[in-house]
Design a protein around this nucleic acid. Structure first.
Lengths: 223, 223
DNA sequence: GGTCAGGTTCAGGCATGCCAAAATTCTGAT
DNA sequence: ATCAGAATTTTGGCATGCCTGAACCTGACC
């Protein structure tokens, strides 16, 4: 079994970012993408990537992009697990609205000990998903991604259930709250515009969701 | 009203340590004491003190010791508030035993946003004391210290109630748990030894508490 | 094989820590 | 009361981690 050392907050943030970007674009992650995502310059990212490579957390070919190594992958999942458990914990125990969960968890996750993390998990009944529908990795490093599709790939007339919403942009989450759209809700797709906007009937009313919002919403794969 | 900036974890730790030591010894705090408390060399502490003085958080006379300034005092109380609320929160929501609270809170306190802190406070019903009996400072910077005395200053024959136990040493807390002594319990003082040890009847049995343990226990001032 | 967007390296900044050496204050003996 | 040695404190030099901007490479494409 891996030593499961603990890493600096910066290292954890990089690992998590690489994990997320890699999943999103399905291939090696670019220095600039990474820096952009983390809000640091490309030169900072480049420097850190060399370090992560030395630590064997990523495999990094200069000028070619990065990918998580096996141990980097496991380390990233540990951080993601902490993050998502914290989001759920804050939501359950404090009733924090979902648009505030991400930022708070982002800060706390680096200070959460593995021991306390598991106490929280146990208390929550070893949950599988967080309040945004994101799967919570297990302690032994598995993630069960329920198949889902972008709302934008829906066709007019379809009825789709919201199964996952990106926690990255609080604005979007607040908007959805205001529109009365929550996780698990069923949306009737009325129209898919060329611009990427989608018109949906959410039960409470008909709304035009702009592309930015559409991109944040994932729906069940079929039905 | 003060700007209430936010400080680095290191700065917060120094402020909290100065706050605590100042209260304990009732006067300016020494560089070496501070370093010892924080597990850092005196030279590191000295360097930080100059910085804190520049930030106007302390008044620092080289070679003469430090004292918190007004704004340093308020900043320290904010950290203490976060720490103690977290301890209570972890205890209430997770049932974490009191010997594990301090260390977890110590790490989390630097990552807890003011907003979330107040959500927690509200959820707990704006409590006044934490699980060790330490008073929780209010948002406007007041601390109500209930009068209490060291267990060691008791006299044989007295009956004293445990109102506060130092959270600094988990060992002591575990020992007390094992002996069945908890906050609020009544102790019958049997004997006070020259060594500083105290023999008590705790209801569940008679125990000789060594000076280290005695020093951690505070009892109600009178009865 | 030149161009240029993207990537890397270099020099340097800030925060914090350490050790060793210098400075200061304290203490106890005369 | 004084002063030498002990104890404490500060300073200076250096290390690490992470960041930045500027200058310099690379490699993919025309």
């Amino acid at each position: 079994m891996a030593p499961a050392r603990s890493f600096s907050a910066a290292v954890e943030d990089y690992l998590k970012a690489i994990y997320r970007l890699q999943a999103e674009i399905g291939g090696p992650v670019t220095t600039t993408e990474l820096g952009g995502w983390l809000g640091v310059t490309a030169s900072s990212a480049s420097g850190m990537l060399r370090k992560l490579d030395d630590l064997q957390l990523v495999s990094y070919e200069p000028y070619r992009g990065v990918q998580l190594s096996d141990s980097g992958w496991r380390a990233a999942l540990r951080v993601v697990r902490r993050h998502r458990l914290l989001e759920l914990f804050l939501s359950e125990t404090l009733g924090l609205p979902w648009d505030r969960l991400h930022d708070e968890a982002e800060k706390l996750e680096h200070a959460l000990s593995p021991g306390l993390c598991e106490v929280i998990a146990a208390r929550l009944g070893d949950p599988r998903t967080d309040p945004h529908g994101d799967p919570i990795p297990t302690t032994d490093g598995r993630v069960i991604e329920a198949p889902s599709a972008n709302l934008g790939s829906s066709l007019p007339g379809q009825r789709r259930r919201v199964v996952r919403v990106s926690d990255r942009d609080p604005e979007v989450l607040r908007l959805l709250t205001d529109l009365g759209i929550a996780l698990g809700d069923s949306l009737h797709v009325r129209d898919v515009h060329a611009s990427g906007a989608v018109t949906v009937d959410a039960g409470g009313g008909v709304h035009v969701l702009d592309p930015h919002v559409v991109a944040a919403i994932r729906v069940e794969a079929n039905e």
